[in-house]
Nucleic acid binder design. Sequence first.
RNA 1: CGGGGUGUGGCGCAGUUGGUAGCGCGCAGCGUUCGGGACGCUGAGGUCGGAGGUUCAAGUCCUCUCACCCCGACCA
Length: 573
Amino acid sequence: MKVSQLFGRTSKTEGSDYKSASHRLLTQAGYIRESTAGRYFFLPLGERVQNNIITVVRKHMESIGAQEVLLPTLHPLDLWRETNRTTTTGFELMKITDRRGGEFALGGTAEEMAVDVVRKFNVSYKDLPFSIYQFSMKFRDEMRARGGLLRVREFIMKDAYSFGTEEQFKATYQAYWDAYKAIFEELGMKVDVVAADNGYIGGEYCHEFVAESEEGESRYFIDEKSGYAAHEDVAKFKVDDKNVTEELKELQEVDAERGTTMEDGVKLHNLPLWQQTKDVLFFDEATKRYILALIRGDFDVNETKLMQAAGAWDLRPATAEEIRDDLGSEPGFISPVGFPKKGAASGHTVVLVGDSSLRTVRNMYGGNNKLNKDLLNINIDRDYKLDIEADIALAQPGFISPDGGVLVEKRGIEVGNIFQLGFHYSNLMHDAEYTNDKGTREKYYMGCYGIGIGRTLAAIVEAHHDDRGIIWPESIAPYKVYLAHLGEDETVMQTAHQLYEDLTRAGVAVLYDDRTDTRAGEKFADADLLGLPYRVVVSAKTLANQQVEVKKRTESDIQLTDQKSVIKMVAGS
RNA sequence: CGGGGUGUGGCGCAGUUGGUAGCGCGCAGCGUUCGGGACGCUGAGGUCGGAGGUUCAAGUCCUCUCACCCCGACCA
């Protein structure tokens, strides 16, 4: 490709609106251009990179036997109703109606569609396990797009769906895990594999592939020693025992003229924070229940864990009015002891969910559901009973991991994930069944596996750039070589042209800067900005010794060599 | 959805107390230059986000509206 003919151009000036390096560099170098918020034009250079990433991903998908398909973009809304996901998805579903009034969702993920196509066939156990996957545009009506390609409303995703038996699943999951590791390694990325929350996808466990970056929105914890890695939503930690040997003392109400914070309680009673009860009241709009979360005073409630434990979907904090008028308690003085089982006015049930850490403390203190009254010596099981006991604690940096090391907080870009779906979809959708060896029908055990192509592209730039521009890994660079001639000397131009043709013939993708009206400085600046792995320069200066110069984008030293060697150097690597 | 901000040639911006739109980059042409974003001259390109209003006169004032950015809420 000749620069003189390339659509899209580099720009010297940059805006001030760019928050992330990838957004600025990709725009400035002419890889992408913004359309509206969260929607981007991929210009020829950007599309080449995207396609190169797709090629790498496809190679590894094929290597584990997944088969590429293409599912419709418009999903019949009835399918989403079948799994109840018209209301439970985390992203806002975009809907469309056709001229007959048929309702469709613009695909944001395609579990239902994958199941739907599979159940159109009479599959035998002999066909299992198998996977289908696709590269397709996904639509998500994100509340807020940001960071260029990092969070968008339309993007190409590789999504794969596996079908098999429960026994087969582990191996399938592992195969994807390994394939993903190989993919990101080939793309020149360092990723952490992090245990995460399934959210609206369903299923019991999943892992995110996260590229560590300041720009990332995923916060997670790592135990560097053992390799334990978990998203903050699900991170576990070791809870230390406190005064577990202390005698149980008698429950006692005391006057407590204090403020409503934990701090106020500590001051008033002159007792440690960990001995205080922390009572947080939520209301789940999805199931119309109050959820009272109870935890040791020095910990915080992890809402994701809480939702999992309580089977809730749509939590919000309870209002002061609800606490007082419906439940007869008092904000800041909530206590599990004698807390009502349902709202007096509303009739909504109350679910009492307690963290396991409550078992590490005795004789706790806290409110008594009345203004300025506290209880001393509250003890679990004796004074109150939990409806659900679970781990609902939020991990913090410095906590001890389940493996004994220290949890370190990290931030990253989630570029891929693998989900165990289990029977989630085959339970919700009819006929999601194959015929087993006894001739009877059995439900599929499923998994799904995604990689955001555009986000991966951006994450690569985040990790590979300097103050002059992008530094592409060779595996996905839009072109391998940036070839330029300096000046308009006849011989120089001819030599450069010849080199362009020779390299191209040798199978090397070359971007040839054939511009005659452009000075050296501009060509060098563009070469750095575009970030191709090799820069080859032909000029009168080099040609005086029958040489051309070669420079790697990753290195600062320049090599002089003859034309034939250039082809070998560049094509060989 | 709440708070803050911005919309003026392709990009970055200026435009005062209202008086009929400008600068830099880029683009096109000519010339001089030519190894880290040169210079001179000439030229093309804007219904000032949109609608309504006030006024003799609106980029500027008022009302409404849309889009975009940042923070938060939320979240593959």
